[in-house]
Structure formats: C-alpha cells, structure tokens
Design a protein around this nucleic acid. Structure first.
Length: 268
DNA sequence: AACGAAACCTGCGCGC
DNA sequence: TGCGCGCAGGTTTCGT
C-alpha cells in the first residue's frame, strides 16, 4: 500500500502517538517476520524518535534502530491489550501507556530489521537507498540515468537510483513530464531529469498533504492511503480519456508492473 | 547490464 | 456455489 507519502503519514502519526513510550513486551505471531533476538532486544527500550528514509520507517530506540518496511499492505493500529488479536495482526508491541501497537499485514511481505545505532545507515537496507526527490541533485540524477539504458519507469522504481517513488507516482510523474515510461534512461535529457525531480517533489508533496487530511477521519488506522484524495491523471485509468488530449490511456506491463500512460502526450 | 519470470503471501473481483 | 485466473501502491533472486 505505501509509497513515500503514505509512509510519511504513518511516520508522523506514529511519532505523535508513541514517542517517549517504552516497549514492555512484544508478541510475534508470524515468526518469519521478526527473529527471536530482535523480539527480545526490543523489550525495555524506549522509543526516542521515528524517522523515515524512502519507504522505510525507523524506530529510534534507546539502544538500537528498528527498521520497518510496510511493503504492499503493512499497516499499524492502536488497540487495547484485551482486544482480540486478529488474523492478520502479526506483531503486537505492548507500550507503556497501556495500549498496544499492532502491525497488520495481509500478505506478510513486511520486514523488520534491528541495527546498531552507529551503523544502521552504512548497512543494508538503508545503505542501498538513494536520495529522495526532495534531496537528490538533478545533475547527479541525470548522470546516473545517462549511464544506464533501462526503461525510465523501471529506473524510477529502483530505490538505489531515486528513493520513495512507487508504481502510482512513477506513472503520475512521467505523465506530468510528458515522458513515455518505456524511454531508455540514456535518452533522458538533463532538462527532463530536472523535470522528473521537480514534478516528483510536487506530486509527492501533494500526496503527503492528502494523506494528512485522510488520516484524521481514520483515527485508529494508520495505514490509510491518501491516494483517493488525489486526482490521478493516468494511473488506473486504462481506456479512459487523457485529461490533456482526450486519447485513450493505455496499460502496459513494464518491469512486471502495470503502467498507465498516454501514447500521444508521452513521447518516446 | 538489462530483462523476464518467479518468489515471498493473501484476498478480491471476474467470467464461466 | 465453486473454480480458475488476473490483479494488487514492493523488493529480491535467479536464469538468460
């Protein structure tokens, strides 16, 4: 479910709710999701801060960093300890305010990794992450694209090239830039690379704002997406008219992912 | 290096 | 009602 904007929203709400609390107990119901050493190490640690890097959420604890990725369907909920643990709630963090933070993940793709505080940025997964559109240098981004020759859509989903963009916003950014998702990266001009970064910032920021408004109506559900607040220009609009030129939006699988674009507006 | 397919999982909607 | 298929906002791995 999450791309950068949704993860940012989850981070913000988590920070407001659990910063300063202590983890008193951790129950793991799906063992592959968190190893026993991590589970034990968490007990007694205080949550000092919550940060986001790309699509990762980092719990800054007294002695460690817990790095969480929500993958496709990870969500967090707050519940009372005595509420029954649901089928898809795989990890329950018992917190010092008497509530439990529950990690819910239908497809069980989410990940939890524990790292030492002094090395977590220099080890995977975070060491593999490039900068986000907000921070990336457009010239450096251009040079990276120039040095490769894969479809630009594939490159935008590659978190080692640019962080935080997922399938929806990749389509939206490329539409905004009038670039065909199949265009090879080495054919992207410096001007276009800059446009990708700028539209990336714009679209992600819009989405973060939308996520922020949505979340207030779903108090207990932290994984709620803001995408329905945003007007999607192409994504999920197969067969519908392009808002710019009226021709039919097409769907094509690129890099194993559904990609939506306007053949007339987005040039090869 | 790039690309496709498969893997990790479950649930939903669809056509028959 | 059941069955099989395609699909899902992510990432890794493996073979060509």
């Amino acid at each position: 479910m999450p791309e950068l904007p949704e993860v940012e929203t989850v981070k913000t709400v988590l920070k407001r709710r659990i910063q300063g609390l202590t983890i008193q107990k951790v129950d793991v119901y799906y063992e592959k999701m968190m190893d026993i050493d991590t589970q034990q190490a968490l007990v007694g640690q205080t949550i000092l801060d919550i940060k986001r890097y790309g699509k990762y959420i980092c719990f800054v604890l007294s002695n460690h960093i817990l790095i969480c990725h929500l993958r496709m369907e990870g969500r967090y909920f707050f519940k009372h300890h005595d509420e029954p643990v649901l089928k898809h709630e795989h990890i329950v963090f018992h917190l010092s305010d008497g509530l439990s933070l529950r990690y819910h993940d239908t497809r069980k793709f989410g990940t939890f990794d524990l790292r030492d505080k002094d090395r977590y940025l220099s080890l995977p997964p975070l060491s593999l992450l490039s900068k986000e559109p907000f921070d990336i240098d457009p010239k450096a981004f251009y040079l990276t694209l120039k040095s490769k020759s894969k479809a630009i859509k594939t490159a935008l989903l590659d978190q080692t090239i640019i962080a935080g963009i997922g399938n929806i916003y990749a389509d939206e950014i490329l539409f905004a830039c009038k670039i065909n998702p199949l265009r090879k990266t080495n054919l992207i001009t410096q001007k276009e690379a800059k446009a990708i970064v700028e539209n990336g910032v714009l679209i992600l920021n819009q989405a973060i704002l939308a996520g922020g408004t949505t979340i207030r109506t779903y108090v207990s559900e932290l994984g709620v997406s803001g995408r329905f607040q945003l007007k999607l220009m192409v994504h999920q609009r197969e067969g519908e008219p392009c808002y710019t030129c009226g021709s039919s939006v097409v769907r094509e699988v690129i890099n194993g992912r559904s990609s939506f674009y306007c053949k007339k507006c987005q040039s090869r």
